[in-house]
């Protein structure tokens, strides 16, 4: 356990070095946005800006400077004109993205597991076939297109739900309960659409797990002992079929802070996807590196978490 955690440190450095060099290899520099489109910006300004951002120093020095700050958990200051702290910029957007992702994850789990289990138990039935088609349509359909159709239907024609954003403009004047309902109304479309796209993966995974478990000897034994079909399926089979889902959940931990650019753009949600995309486009190195390093840490932690909880849940793989 301790050994695994120690191994994570060089791994983390490897990831950051690769990210750092790839980012700097991309053509363009953070000063371009301020200088290229402006007929009044002089070459001297560009040099001044470069010096201000330490971009005039050799790459390895820049990396060392960045690591030194990281060591005290300082992600630096953004290169964009607002010059805010990277941590502020990330923390401001993190709650939105994380809660959206958790909500859609809950929705996915609560739909995909029953669908998967039922279609496995009734393999080949009409229900199995229909849900199969349904989840694959969800998987294949372009989200942005469906999102626009939903907006036209629910936002414009029926006028049931708000189209974009997270809150109504008069949010502050609402009583708490109304404000809460307002927030929920704004979340319905994005969460539903995000879940629709993710349904296929988990439900098919669950279905195949379940099919495999049902064929195991201990299920035959359980049936032979005369347990009711209900007990066999939902007590013995389901619990075993759920085990691999733990791994899947662990692997999705880094995904919680990632947002989809297209999705956030369509719905006007100020999330991490947009921040990351815009930072890459404007070559805002500190923000890009900040998000990447958080992502890397979460990936490593998620893997560790998945392994640990798997061992806790499944006695068969515990190392004695």
């Amino acid at each position: 356990m301790l050994r695994r955690m120690i191994f994570m440190i060089p791994l983390l450095f490897g990831i950051t070095i690769i990210c750092f060099s790839v980012m700097h290899l991309a053509p363009g520099s953070p000063t371009d946005l301020q200088t290229q489109m402006n007929p009044r910006a002089s070459a001297e300004l560009r040099e001044r800006l470069r010096a201000m951002y330490d971009l005039d120093k050799p790459l390895h020095i820049q990396y060392a400077l960045w690591v030194r700050k990281l060591a005290v958990l300082d992600l630096g200051t953004s290169f964009s004109p607002d010059r805010r702290k990277v941590s502020d910029k990330i923390l401001e957007r993190l709650p939105v993205t994380v809660s959206l992702n958790i909500l859609s994850m809950i929705l996915i789990l609560s739909l995909a597991i029953p669908i998967g289990v039922l279609s496995a138990v009734h393999q080949g039935s009409l229900f199995d076939k229909l849900t199969g088609v349904f989840v694959f349509i969800g998987f294949a359909i372009p989200t942005f297109w469906l999102a626009l159709l939903f907006m036209i239907l629910f936002g414009v024609n029926l006028d049931w739900l708000p189209i974009s954003g997270l809150r109504s403009l008069n949010y502050e004047y609402m009583p708490p309960l109304v404000a809460f309902v307002d927030l929920i109304k704004h979340l319905i479309l994005p969460v539903t659409l995000a879940a629709f796209g993710g349904l296929a993966g988990l439900s098919r995974y669950m279905r195949s797990n379940m099919l495999e478990v049902i064929r195991q000897d201990y299920i035959v034994t359980a049936r032979a002992n005369g347990l009711s079909e209900r007990t066999v399926i939902y007590k013995h089979a389901l619990r075993n079929a759920l085990l691999p889902v733990i791994t899947l959940l662990g692997l999705s931990v880094p995904g919680l802070i990632g947002g989809s650019v297209i999705f956030e753009t369509i719905f006007g949600i100020p999330g991490m996807g947009q921040l990351f995309y815009m930072s890459v486009m404007s070559r805002d190195y500190p923000v890009v590196m900040g998000i990447l390093v958080i992502g890397a840490v979460l990936t490593l932690l998620g893997n560790l978490l998945a392994d640990v909880s798997y061992a806790l849940a499944d006695p068969r793989i515990r190392i004695s």
Partner: peptide
């Protein structure tokens, strides 16, 4: 000023 990054969404708004 509402930030609506997508033109199609903005038209729907």
């Amino acid at each position: 000023l509402r930030i609506i990054p997508d033109m199609a969404t903005m038209f729907l708004e």
